[in-house]
Design a protein around this nucleic acid. Structure first.
Lengths: 251, 251
DNA sequence: TGTACATCAGTGAACGCGCGTTCACTGATGTAC
DNA sequence: TGTACATCAGTGAACGCGCGTTCACTGATGTAC
């Protein structure tokens, strides 16, 4: 049952038996909750059932999570961190080649989604009604977008496609392949760019958002059954989309 | 309370009072169910609460829908038909100008989604766990994709962008802006094209799918809260994306 | 046009169920001196 | 090293609740002759 070993906080000498037991039971509870998530979905999740499966009485769960919503929040944070880590690792393994990093990040995220469909649905599907995500989720939630943006640092402004078979270089400022950017959008993008430490130009950021929404649109369609009867399996379509996006984004 | 007047089937002389009452109550039930959907989401939907609100005893609902799943199915079918109709109308109003039709369809679908977020979530969000969509939904579900494909009829194969500021015409078969299409994908696409009566070339269909998933990816991100703190409001980003896609698709 | 019978809509009680959360409690683990 | 007290984990019973579905029933609407 025990699946996640507690890592000692570096400052402290050693954890008490109580602390170790608590950490491992907390992990057990979350793991069981994830298992149930996969069976009955986010709002079918039942504290009593989790407690039952974990081998304790339902009221005991309240020593670990003050309410059902808190357990849900923990699962959401974990899920964001899980995809986030997968994405960051994909970027790290191809640190010097942005185009390969982009392909890697896409496939890594898709693979994670296919392996953990209910966790994916939990964070990228319809929000659980009546549940409002607390602040604590926004950090973990931004790991994927940040990983993506990190690989756009070297992309030039104004043009598209330098990869595979591209015949026209980074181009004209009001380039043929760039949709017009309204003043308001420019301002939004500029504000975000400033927040990000000016690591990418605004128009690159915009195309990055396009790629991001395309990526998740594709994965959601596949996972949520919109391709049934058409592009199923979706592996090849995904590969195609990812490459098309790589080009659009300027990789 | 009564909101939907029964339309006579053209063949029959007249409906009995019973038939009229049944039709209008069925509509009332669905409407109330939709209202609840908006409040508590798809799986919080309760037959008893619907019955209560509609002014009947819970068991009476079973004269109209044999089970909760059947009511859900009816709502799903209605939702698909609602977006489908919106999409078809958008295309119809711009029948002769494919590019404008594309812009219209995108804005129409987004407007519908923003106006009916829970119905959108019902059909494009995470599937309701334990619920398996029956055959009856696939017809209505394909109205949007078909509407989209219908406006790609005039798009040439092989190239991109002829709209707004495009400087390079439909181009080279292994064109610069086309990601490679694998054999398997080509076959999938060709199969679908045949099903569709050869109204579009396979590569146009593929780029259409890209546009479709991009469109819904964008709307889902907006509706499901992924833009909180970045591109909110998302109107301008959406406009930008839609234009970028128009170009990519060759409009 | 009127009557006898069949169909259907809606009632109300009941079935068996699981849920989230609270509370007073016992017993084990940790801490201070 | 040993004892006294404080902290925490887990128990079990109870609270009040709403759910989907079935069933035998009454009364209204429709149909055939």
């Amino acid at each position: 049952m025990i699946s996640e070993v507690r890592v000692m906080p570096p400052g402290k000498a050693s954890a008490t038996a109580r602390e170790r037991a608590r950490a491992s039971l907390t992990a057990d509870i979350k793991q069981e909750a994830r298992r149930q998530l996969a069976k009955v979905g986010a709002d079918g999740l039942s504290l009593r059932a989790v407690a039952r499966e974990v081998g304790m009485v339902s009221s005991a769960l309240y020593r670990y999570f003050p309410s059902k919503d808190d357990l849900l929040t923990a699962l959401i944070v974990d899920a964001y961190n899980a995809v986030g880590e997968v994405a960051e690792q994909a970027v790290a393994t191809e640190a010097t080649r942005p185009r390969e990093a982009w392909l890697a990040i896409c496939h890594a995220i898709r693979a994670w989604a296919l392996a953990n469909p209910h966790e994916y649905a939990l964070i990228y599907g319809s929000p659980v009604p009546g549940y409002r995500a607390p602040e604590a989720t926004i950090g973990p939630a931004s790991r994927v977008p940040l990983a993506l943006i990190s690989l756009l640092g070297g992309v030039g402004s104004g043009g598209t496609g330098s990869g595979e078979g591209a015949s026209v270089g980074a181009g004209s400022p009001e380039g043929a392949r760039n949709a017009p950017v309204s003043g308001a959008l420019e301002a939004q993008a500029a504000g975000l760019v400033a927040l990000l430490g000016d690591s990418v130009p605004p128009d690159v950021l915009l195309r990055g958002m396009l790629a991001l929404t395309q990526l998740f649109g594709m994965i959601s369609f596949e996972l949520f059954g919109q391709f049934v009867g058409s592009f199923e399996p979706a592996d090849e379509l995904f590969e195609y989309a990812v490459r098309q996006m790589a080009w659009l984004v300027g990789l």
